[in-house]
Each structure stands twice: as C-alpha cells, then as structure tokens.
Simulated scan of single mutants.
Amino acid sequence: MIQSTATLTCPHCGHRDTQVMPNDACVFFWTCPGCGDTLRPRPGDCCVFCSYGDVPCPPVQAAGGRPGACCG
C-alpha cells in the first residue's frame, strides 16, 4: 500500500513536519518552518521526500523503492 503522507526532518534544526505527498509531481523545495532554510533534494534523489522524509515519494514507493523512479 502506498503511503500518501511523510514526515520531513530538517537536517539543520531537526524540526519535523508531516506533509501530504503529491502522487503526480515532485517537490523540489521545502522551507523548514523551524529555521526557515529551504531544502532541495540530495544528489541522486528526485524530491525532498526521498531525501528528508521518513517515506519516499509515491512514484518511488510504487516502483518498489527504486531511486529515480520519480520525475524521470
């Protein structure tokens, strides 16, 4: 079953924020409500959910966890 929410954790301040993930789009930027830093995906990741979330984005989940399955 594909999860539609993920908790993003800021690597700078540790703030955690639960977000609904889009099924058909990548999220390239996320502004941390805790410190205000704008995060981008890490190299090799397709979106901020794959980089900083506790669950990868829905397209990656549907592809069995294969990195790059989103927005490629």
Rank of each mutant, 00 (worst) to 15 (best):
D37M: 15
G65Y: 05
D37P: 01
V60P: 02
G34K: 15
P11H: 12
P41D: 11
C57W: 05
D24A: 06
C46H: 14
G68E: 01
T18S: 11
G36S: 11
R40Q: 12
C32T: 14
D17V: 08
C47M: 03
H15L: 10
I2P: 08
H15D: 13
G53C: 04
A69Q: 07
P33M: 10
Q61Y: 00
G65S: 14
C26T: 14
D54V: 04
D37C: 11
P58H: 00
G34S: 11
N23K: 11
H15V: 15
M1W: 03
T38M: 07
F28P: 05
T7S: 15
R42C: 01
Q3C: 02
S4I: 06
C57N: 03
D24R: 11
D24K: 06
A25Q: 15
V27H: 04
C70Y: 00
G44A: 05
D37K: 15
V20H: 11
R42W: 03
Q19N: 15
A62V: 02
G14I: 14
S4H: 08
V27Q: 14
G53S: 05
H12Y: 08
R16W: 08
P41A: 14
M21R: 00
T7A: 08
C70V: 09
F28Y: 14
M21I: 03
P11Q: 08
A69I: 07
D54P: 08
T38H: 03
C26A: 14
M21L: 10
C26Q: 07
G34A: 13
C47E: 08
Q61L: 05
D54Y: 10
